[in-house]
Design a protein around this nucleic acid. Structure first.
Lengths: 137, 137
DNA sequence: TTTGGTGCAAAAAGTTTGCATCCTT
DNA sequence: AAGGATGCAAACTTTTTGCACCAAA
């Protein structure tokens, strides 16, 4: 998602567009990988002197709630990225080095065999981890 | 895994078997779902008066490091369960209600199509969430 | 007896909340 | 002008660390 799309989506849902939120949108628009709240705080802090952690958390949560950010739980903590612009159902390849994610459309649920019929499946998670083109060196 | 198997595995790797660790092994042997460190602390605390949180964490980490416990990151925090006794490569069905996990052997990597060949896959995650037989009521 | 395990206390890290003030709308 | 957004301080939760004492092997 581009920064403008993020800002527009926020405005449409009644959020006020502050300088800080505009910067947040730009930050996520240009990040290819996932970003921790701490990293957001540090990056934003360079521009906004008195920035506080709670504002970062509040904005991340709000942006996640309204769907412009995706939240992802890694072993080492919660991270965020801009919502994927791929609209069809898809999954992700995630680089273990740079955490860049690459969408791809294969879904294992189309192929799954052997699912016991007394289990009522409602959602699933499928991710492939590895090294992207740039990080294979 | 049964409590005795867990204890034996720990002993084989040079861990001392304390009363507390024996109780831990029993706790995980009989839990079908995932357990939070906090829950472990509360359950163990009933038996061991002066139990401290740090000992719980230390033991969980050690047991995870030596492979008798599996660690799983949920949206609401890290949880543990006894290593699955299924030896072949497999994935899990996870009940959203009781968190019981059911192993099943289908693997999406055998069927995957459309993986870009400049991405070097090294591991993957696949879980199906839903409601188990008992929780469908 | 020796080394690892435990409890205690404290610190560190991550996240949330209340409130007065500021600023977008 | 009004209500949402922010900064500040503080509380809270979760997890880690140092140290003295205790116990399994």
């Amino acid at each position: 998602m581009k920064a403008e799309e993020i800002i527009q989506a926020m405005a449409e849902q009644g959020m006020r567009i502050t300088d800080q939120r505009r910067t947040l949108a730009e930050l996520f628009a240009k990040s290819e990988g996932y970003v921790t709240p701490k990293a957001v705080y540090e990056i934003m802090g360079k521009t906004y002197g008195g920035l506080s952690f709670d504002t970062v958390y509040r904005n991340l949560r709000i942006m996640h709630d309204m769907g412009v950010l995706e939240q992802f739980v890694f072993e080492d903590g919660i991270k965020f990225r801009a919502r994927c612009s791929e609209m069809d159902h898809h999954h992700h390849l995630i680089c273990l080095q740079c955490e860049k994610t690459i969408p791809f459309v294969f879904c294992p649920m189309d192929e799954v065999k052997g699912l016991p019929d007394d289990f009522k499946a409602v959602k699933h998670k499928f991710e492939i981890y590895g090294y992207c083109k740039d990080c294979q060196k």
